[in-house]
Write a protein that binds this DNA or RNA. Sequence first.
DNA 1: CGGATCTTTGATCACAGTCAAAAAGCGTGG
DNA 2: CCACGCTTTTTGACTGTGATCAAAGATCCG
Lengths: 249, 249
Amino acid sequence: MANYLIDAESLLLFHDMSEEERDQLISAAKIRHFAKGDTIFMHGDAIDVFYIVLEGAVRNYRTTPDGKDITLDLCLRGDMVGASHLFEHCSGYRWSAIANEKTTALQYPVEWFKNKVRSSSTLALNLLAAMSHSSHMAAIDAEHLVNFSAPQRVACFILRLCVLYKFDPAGFDFPYSKTTIASKLGMELETFSRTLQTLKKIGVAVQGSHVKIESLHKLECYACGHCSIETDCPTRNALLDMHDLDESA
Amino acid sequence: MANYLIDAESLLLFHDMSEEERDQLISAAKIRHFAKGDTIFMHGDAIDVFYIVLEGAVRNYRTTPDGKDITLDLCLRGDMVGASHLFEHCSGYRWSAIANEKTTALQYPVEWFKNKVRSSSTLALNLLAAMSHSSHMAAIDAEHLVNFSAPQRVACFILRLCVLYKFDPAGFDFPYSKTTIASKLGMELETFSRTLQTLKKIGVAVQGSHVKIESLHKLECYACGHCSIETDCPTRNALLDMHDLDESA
DNA sequence: CGGATCTTTGATCACAGTCAAAAAGCGTGG
DNA sequence: CCACGCTTTTTGACTGTGATCAAAGATCCG
């Protein structure tokens, strides 16, 4: 438990705060553990709390009247789940959230947290920064939906894993099931599967959930080379930093 | 000019404020007029100001390395343009903005405004609400990109015009060129054009830029009936309110 | 080992993108 | 008022991508 608390200090939301203020915020949270498959909240439920993921992954989803299940987002360490409900009047949660695997999260009562935001401009600014960032990432995904082919979206996803989450290109395991990844990328499982065949040509070898990448650079050319976001893509910037390191080495 | 100022008080961002505070904010703004086609800022430019649209429409777009022009969003009265740059450290604007028609907007220096946000929790909360709302709308569009056919996206767009912007279903003009609408909806102009043929079947008659709708209800069945957002869609809720009015009448 | 879930593969089809050309609309100037 | 050129939109023919349906293989777990 102490581990989570120490970790929590590194969260973006608690940046630039006095020890005192941060401690108060962290100790006010309830630490929740969820098993794989646990429902965290349901679409329409009364809104009383929101979460910050410390460990694991939360899948946000909705269901269409036709019965289709749509993944809106996957939230990992540091991501807020449901925070957008804080400042808009809505009667219930606007989607459902489920633990995609064993997950630990900080739980805050919405009203309590809102008051904290009112009284702490640092917290307000951090929240604004966090929301700006997540809507930026969402905008990137939305753009790819229109302009990228399925293999390009997958390439971008893999790059992100390696570059932003430090997975080792020489060999790593997908952090979610292929079903989950496919739905996060807005494509059918079958398409995802075929896509992996396509990516073999540019040096992506997948066996089960194990992935080996020949060259990040090839992937970058394949995906980022056609992306309008360019200098504003966190993934790409991190990749460029890595190139710089290579050169200076 | 006085007109704009009076209008400005009705903007969401200035809600729930003391007269004094609001007046100070409004009078600090520079009022900018843009002609159709004027560039407001360019992707990569140093970030110094952001805008709130009072009149007209601003098109946010980016260009891919392949030379494709992508419309990210159309900002109308009350929408903020570039506000998401306020709280994230980025070297330059992350997209370009252009006046899609004759446009008037409030212009604020980013640093000045940021300080205001720091010192006014009301402003901070309003900003959070506004950002939550716009990311909610963006999420709706993103979902439609995956789950809706082109005609469904157009139907949803038309519904939104009638319901949220009070256009008269019995006859109104598109507020933008078809080229602009198509790109906002993430489809090709040709597809948009053909889509209008398809929608004839459900009572949408388009002649040039003039639109006549037989029944909003039919459109609702066609689009919203397959949408997972349901009770959280502003368009649909407004539509349901209208039904209630009809019944009580 | 058996049953469930997850993933791959195959065949088919529809939707929307692309390229090309014709048509309609629009503003300017004679 | 018409003629001209330019932009916007429509129509046509074609193609490729990815969804869908169906069935077979993997993989996991009790």
